[in-house]
Each structure stands twice: as structure tokens, then as C-alpha cells.
Amino acid sequence: MERIGLLRMPIGNLQSAWNALYELGFDPEMVDEQSDFDELTHLIVPGVGNFKAVMAHLNAKGLPNKIRAFAATGRPTLGICVGMQLLAATGTESGQTDGLGFVRATVERLPGGPGMPLPHVGWSTVDLKRDHPVTDNVKQGRDFYFVHSYAMKCEDETDAIGITNYGDDFVSIVGRDNVVGFQFHPEKSQANGLKLLENFCYWDGQC
């Protein structure tokens, strides 16, 4: 039986993600630094806000090692939005900051420009680059709902499951071993977003 943990974050609205998981038939638990992660089968790290500030919050609570220890057991681990960005080795928002380091990647500001205001908000297309259990039954070239100004660039192209273009190509779905990340908000992306969440929750972490 799946036991899904949703990590509590300092700001932002977790309820929408919780509601989406509940709608899918799961009974997710809000977890924090006091929780026993060993009891979970899946961990979700959501996140809204500034890379450096969110990472500082995790560090202050001793959470990075706890998240790393969970993922090291091979259990499925998901980052959403800034939670995906934290999976990278390095963030650059408000200065260079170490991330959780699951993926050899950096998180950089999108270029912006005429007709491409930042933050990038709205429905944009995800171009699926390779098969992955989490994208099963999600069609190529569908649109998802984004709200962000920074995005991930991977050193190893095979870590990029989905690519989106907004002035420049960036990684919108990342996957390495048992860790995956969505730059968009699956909980706001209707049927396809919910499908991704459902796939993640039934995933065993094997590729």
C-alpha cells in the first residue's frame, strides 16, 4: 500500500497538491523534519519561492540529509516546481547555492525578452524525449501549467525526460534513477497533470 509523504514547506499552498493526490485515491501525509520517513513509500517535495530561501529553510531543519537518505533506499522521490529545481547540484537564484545534488544540473534564470515576460506563467508544451514509467499514457506534446522564472539545465542529456521552450529550451521533466521532477504544476494541469502524479504514486522507482 502506498504511503505518500508530502513535505511541508515554509510558504505556498500545499493544499492543491494534497487535494490532487486525494482525488486520485491516495491518502497523502504532510511530513516534516519530525516525521519518520522510513514509513513512507513515496516522497514529494513541492516548493514555491526562491531557491536560496527554500534551501536555507531545508538546511535549518536538517532536511537535506533526511531526503537524501530516503532516496538512497531507491524509493520514488519527486520534486515539483522549486522542489524539482532543488534536485539539481547548483542553484543561481539570489547567488550560487548548493542543491540536493541528485542530478548533475544547474538552475538558471530564463532569458525572457520581448513577448516572453518573466515569470513564465501559463500553459506550455512538454516535448517528451524518452520513455519513463512516470509518463506512461501521457501523450507527446501536451500542455502543462507553469509558474517560474528559473529552470533546469542538465549536464547529462539523458536525464531530461521532457523539454519545454520559453525563449530557450529547459528541462521540464527530469529523471535520474528513482528521482523525478516536474517544473510545471501537475496539480494545476488537469487530466495530464493528474496522470503524471498517479503514475508517480504507483511507480516502484525502477526505470
Binding site: N13, Q15, S16, A20, E23, E187, Q190, G193
Partner: peptide, 28 residues
């Protein structure tokens, strides 16, 4: 509504302060 609808949602009517706006955003 955020229990049954999984898309972006905007809310207004009667917002008189930044606190009102923040409360709506933090609630979904």
C-alpha cells in the same frame, strides 16, 4: 473548489487589502 478542480483559479470581489489577497492565495 480546489478539491474538485485542478486548474489555475483566480478569485476576486471585495479584496480590500494585501492581507485579503494573501489569504486567498495561501488557501488555494
Amino acid at each position: 473548489v480546489s478539491k474538485v478542480s485542478f486548474m489555475p483559479m483566480a478569485m476576486g470581489g471585495g479584496i480590500g487589502s494585501a492581507e485579503d489577497a494573501a489569504n486567498l492565495i495561501l488557501n488555494g
